[in-house]
Amino acid sequence: MNRVHSVLRRWSTRWLFPIVALMLGGCAGPQSALDPAGQGAEDIARIFWIMVIGATIIWITVIGLAIYALRLKPGPHHRRRSGVWIIGGGVIAPTVILTGLVIYSLAFLPQLLARPPEGSLQIKVEGLQWWWRVTYLENGEPDFELANEIHLPVGEPVEFLLSSPDVIHSFWIPALGGKVDMIPGRETRLTLMPTRTGTFRGVCAEYCGASHALMNFTVVVEEPEDYQQWLAEQRSPARQPAEELTILGRELFVSSGCGACHSVRGTDANGRIAPDLTHVGSRHKLGADVLPNDRASFERWIRHTDDVKPDVLMPEYHSLDAAELTALAAYLESLD
């Protein structure tokens, strides 16, 4: 008996507790569908919990019956009564339960798919290998553009217009709602309604190539006045460099040809291939939520791009020496 206890204790310490802790880690945090911060996510989480509770009851019942039949009352059972259990438990009960669950979950679909009221906030998001082009719309027309970060006012519905110019991606903010595919040649839509403030994480939920797992974005849900202030900042052109180092950085940005792919509003850089960098210094993360937003990360990204994000289109800039790299990184960091 003591041996059994010691084996169980060792097994629990080595396997059970770490596995349970790992699984429970998914129940909260910025990317958890089980810690909802939006109306759609709340509905989905409710469906999930009802299914979990129902499945647990069914599992306990089935295992209980198996223990009863094999351990508590082994031997032949009454034929007709066994038939009732087989037909009732094996055919009728699953049909009734599954029908109930199908109807219950389908009933949520209309509200999950409903369009927001006229005049609601609209944001166009394009999924590209492996980043997100985010365009805020004003009366259906582009207002300003940024990348890999979305800010939303709490308590207001927002409609996302989703598309992709390359391969199929899927737009998913687990804490706010369901996911919708982004299909080349089509525009799909998703309505979300954030219910509490916070910083959340969005992901691409459809395998889209080598760096699929490195295609994420930050979602900031904030009070309406903070959101309005952020809007005003994002609409403004890029800050002019004031220090010697950042001025040199801007010159390097121009002379290295960065503007052929990137845009920085208020300068001659107006490339459309890569992310808009007008306010890149103000973003939470770099490289589609891969690196912290600091000078060292800019340097790493420019010098070792393919190490950070395999197969990415941006070339590595080995032609810059250490001082030039620091200046360019300082300029980008100053674009807040």
Partner: peptide
């Protein structure tokens, strides 16, 4: 067929 009962539009 139940899907058509709950989904009411092409959206």
């Amino acid at each position: 067929a139940l899907v058509a009962v709950f989904i009411g539009s092409c959206d």
